[in-house]
Design a protein around this nucleic acid. Structure first.
Length: 499
RNA sequence: GGCGCCAUGGUGCAACGGUUAGCACGGCAGUCUUUCAAGCUGCAGAUCCGGGUUCGAUUCCCGGUGGCGCUACCA
């Protein structure tokens, strides 16, 4: 038979059994921007899909009309695009599939797995309060669970919600790819609402209907959904359909160990983009929040992440978001990525700050590349190119007060720098060697340390106390600029003047 | 409160019955140097507590404590 031949073929290829194509989804609700936790969930889904040759689906869960903001969908997509998490299907919108959810709810009523509940939200709230005041844990009391035919008929046509009929005894157990065996007693699960009285589906209905419809094989989502899982499994059982594999991800916390939120600073991943983080660095950092390849490897390009990622290796412990480490990753990528991959990103950053000049893409392309190469070992964020390294791309820059204080305090400097400008003006071949010889020669003649001149000149040329090695800096700035900036500093001397 | 999950230095991860408990970030010190990074060297710093099981527990079991999550006609 063809099937068994196929099985044998898979066995020969090293697969234990022929598996259906992996299909995973990221299903954000557009109630906010793409935050770090959501981005990590999306990343893990994406890594798994890419590794398995599967399909990564994007689904927008926008059934809460009060809280969903359509324009935020675009913000979420924006974040995913920045991170390079491309999706193969979608984005699907739940708001466009309302009929399907209503039909599924009806089907569950027909099969006896769900029922109409006529309790109003106000009544429910009152009973909940009463129970809590009496010190009892509230759970829907099942008032409408077993109405007689006559009672149902009396309510026919009136607004009602649809609730799932949770089995009375027993428990639901599943084998989570991350958390292992997890079980919940049915007695702990209330008859949850599937369809609201306004006919909008709740999360549970929408998720199960869509995961079924989209043939999702693996549900990879935050551990905050752990307690939702038995409800959904109950629905799969009621529908007589196989359930997907579940893999829950530990949560990402802020420094104070509470859930990451606005209080902890940047909450949207695009704000990290705006600060000048590289997407590949951010991805690498994110991948290591709750997962490790099992050894000490940390720097992993995307291909390696895809190759080594294992859901089974995902940790069960919540992780604290460590900004300092993220910055380290970024600095590392800034220094070590192939220059061609960095240049366009520096270009985009300069454009964003209005410092870009078109000739750097044309005639002065080499100059631009050399300059970025010179600067990048000391940069931590892309934005450093427009702030700290501004003087390399613009003649308009300020002297950092700290630099002035540190390196321009010697009263002899105005005179010395005047002589230095003269000496440098006389250099005919503008090379590292020639400029260095001119400066050191002057230092020796004047009887001062070369470092005094070097440090002061660095401030003159860059406005900063920290910059690349001076003679390399002179080279990329060129003779005219160097002389101009030296004279400019002397004329506008910000340090102590000779008495 | 109930239910669930988790617990290795400040942080992220290793060690899945036997290691002087490893790596990275961060911190500190030294080195290099033309400032600052980078690099190199070194230092400090952890198995939540208590019981078991075992020749032997970070590891397995139980209890406690703590943290987090859920507890909606939100997702």
């Amino acid at each position: 038979m063809a099937g068994s031949q196929l099985s044998r073929l898979f066995l020969m290829m090293g697969f234990s059994r022929p598996m259906a194509t992996v299909r995973v989804r990221f299903a954000p609700s557009p109630t906010g921007y793409l935050h770090v936790g959501g981005a990590r969930t999306a990343l893990f889904n994406w890594l798994f899909a890419r590794q398995q040759g599967g399909v990564f689906i994007l689904r927008i869960e926008d059934t809460d009309a009060d809280r969903s903001r359509p324009e935020l969908t675009e913000a979420v997509l924006d974040g995913l695009r920045w991170l390079g998490l491309n999706w193969d299907e979608g984005p699907y919108h739940q708001s466009e599939r309302l009929e399907a959810y209503r039909a599924l709810a009806e089907r569950l009523i027909q099969s006896g797995h769900a029922y109409r509940c006529h309790c109003t939200p106000e009544e429910l709230e009152a009973r909940r309060q009463a129970a809590e005041q009496a010190g009892r844990a509230w759970k829907y009391d099942g008032r409408c669970r077993n109405l007689t035919a006559a009672q149902r008929a009396a309510q026919a046509g009136k607004p009602s919600a649809v609730r799932f009929r949770v089995p009375e005894g027993g428990e639901t157990v599943w084998d989570d790819l991350v958390y292992g065996r997890v079980e919940f007693a049915h007695s702990e699960i209330e008859d949850f609402v599937l369809l609201r009285r306004d006919l909008m589906p709740t999360y549970h209905l929408g998720v199960v209907a869509d995961d079924l419809e989209m043939r999702i094989t693996h549900v990879i989502r935050g551990a905050d959904h752990l307690a939702n899982t038995p409800k959904q499994i109950l629905m799969y059982n009621a529908l007589g359909t196989p359930q997907p594999v579940f893999a829950h991800l530990p949560l990402i916390l802020g420094r104070d160990r509470t859930r990451l939120s606005k209080r902890h600073g940047a909450t949207s991943v695009t704000s990290y983009r705006d600060e000048g983080f590289l997407p590949e660095a951010f991805r690498n950092f994110l991948a290591l929040l709750g997962w490790s390849p099992g050894d000490d490897t940390e720097l992993m390009r995307t291909e390696e992440l895809i190759r080594r990622f294992r859901l089974q290796q995902v940790s069960r412990t919540n992780a604290v978001f460590d900004r300092a480490k993220l910055e380290w990753f970024n600095a590392e990528y800034l220094r070590t990525e192939p220059l061609e991959k960095i240049l366009p990103q520096v270009e985009a950053t300069l454009k964003k700050f209005g410092l870009w000049r078109e000739e750097w893409a044309g005639a002065e392309r080499d100059w631009f590349a050399r300059t970025v190469e010179l600067l990048r070992p000391r940069a931590r964020l892309l934005n450093d190119f427009t702030t700290w390294a501004r003087a390399f791309f613009s003649d308009q820059f300020d002297y950092d007060p700290e630099a002035v204080k540190k390196f321009l305090k010697d009263e002899r400097l105005p005179a010395l720098l005047t002589q230095l400008a003269e000496a440098l003006a006389g250099v005919s071949d503008w090379t590292h060697e020639a400029t260095e010889a001119a400066l050191r020669g002057l230092a020796e003649k004047a009887g001062v340390k070369a470092a005094l001149l070097i440090n002061a000149t660095r401030v003159a040329l860059t406005g900063q106390a920290v910059a690349p090695p001076l003679f390399e800096t002179m080279l990329v700035l060129g003779q005219d600029r160097v002389l101009t900036r030296l004279r400019c500093l002397i004329e506008n001397w910000p340090g102590p003047k000779p008495t």
